[in-house]
Design a binder for these strands. Structure first.
Length: 330
DNA sequence: AAATAGGACAACCGCTTTGGA
DNA sequence: TTCCAAAGCGGTTGTCCTATT
């Protein structure tokens, strides 16, 4: 991060609050340290109380944001790896601008970070790719469906999606009819209506996954398998949907103190672009297990919240399935 | 060397959702 | 059931850095 400018922060004090002058703008290292220490000793609570009790002239909302987006010890920081970028593109094609849900599947990354990356880099890259792969009727939109049709995924042209049937290689293809047009909008995934209330967590398996994720570097375990969509040997709507794991936000207590102390030390060391203070530049070392919390923890008993797949909700809508899905097991 | 444009990213704003009284 | 405060979320803005002219 850039070096905070105390003068600017001072200038931006919110004078509209008569009770207490609340600071706005960039956080100073001292403020960071206060918040970190308070969080370390007291844990998370009511954010407005935290702001007060920690001696910060910040609103609770600002403290929460600072903690979540920057100070949390489990943040990875640093540049996104190509694999992470592919994941973001992939998830965005499914989830749209649901940054928090995308972030929940990228451990150590925040929704804000992902959103910034998307808006500043990935969207443009996809647009360029789309333009070079001839997609004449696409507009400039962040609509995930545009991305899907922009040449990254084959869905736009083929309307076929891949169901992974086991953890290694076999797959079944589902042929889909031309897109349903609802409300004058292109909708290649009528079932996966992004506006419905169903989380699309399981949907990655419905789509082709970026090739880099299925090739070397991501480990032996199948990407599909890790994400889990359909249990092997099962096809149809009575099969079990297994969920891609959501990142556990909990921090192991034993690690938290060390991580926080490290973060403080690093922040002090890095006065320039202290984004790197948590940096893990060894992008190639990222493993699927690490990325999805498969190793050691967090798979089975995950408390599914935001990203929970609402199977019942899906089933409520499922009556329309046979009309436009034609299963073709290859 | 100075000016400028564009990129990157932290932080804010406003709306929605959630939970408790 | 309603109201209200807190939390969550996504869009947007503002600032700094870097590359280019």
């Amino acid at each position: 991060m850039r070096k905070p400018d105390p003068n600017m922060a001072k200038d931006r004090v919110n004078n509209s609050n008569n009770k207490m002058k609340l600071r706005k703008g960039l956080w100073s290292p001292e403020e960071d340290e206060k918040l970190i220490k308070y969080m370390l000793t007291n844990g998370q609570g009511c954010w407005s109380d935290i702001a007060k009790n920690a001696g910060l002239q910040r609103c609770g909302k600002s403290c929460r944001l600072r903690w979540i987006n920057y100070l949390r010890p489990d943040l990875k920081r640093g540049a996104f790896s190509p694999q992470e970028e592919d994941l973001i593109i992939h998830f965005h094609s499914i989830l749209g601008n649901r940054w928090s849900q995308i972030a929940a599947r990228l451990p150590g990354r925040t929704d804000n970070e992902i959103k910034n990356l998307w808006n500043s880099t990935l969207k443009k890259r996809l647009k360029n790719n789309a333009s070079t792969t001839s997609s004449p009727n696409k507009n400039d939109s962040s609509d995930p469906r545009d991305v899907a049709g922009g040449g990254i995924f084959p869905l736009h042209e083929q309307y076929s999606v891949t169901f992974c049937m086991d953890s290694i290689s076999s797959s079944s293809k589902i042929s889909m009819p031309p897109p349903m047009v609802t409300n004058n909008q292109f909708d290649p995934f009528p079932l996966l209506n992004i506006n419905n209330r169903y989380d699309l967590t399981c949907a990655p398996g419905l789509l082709d996954v970026p090739t880099c994720l299925t090739q070397g570097g991501m480990g032996e375990a199948s990407f599909y398998g890790d994400y889990g969509v359909l249990e092997p040997g099962k096809l149809g709507f009575e099969c079990d949907f297994s969920l891609p794991p959501l990142e556990s936000r909990s921090i192991e207590d034993n690690n938290a103190a060390a991580a926080i102390n490290n973060s403080i030390d690093h922040r002090k060391r890095n006065s320039h672009h202290n984004n790197t203070c948590f940096n893990n530049t060894d992008h190639q070392s990222i493993k699927v297990g690490d990325m999805f919390g498969l190793e050691n923890h967090h798979w089975g008993g995950e408390n599914l919240k935001m990203g929970e797949w609402d199977l019942e909700g899906l089933m409520d809508n499922i009556s329309s399935f046979p009309n436009f899905l034609d299963f073709q097991v290859e």
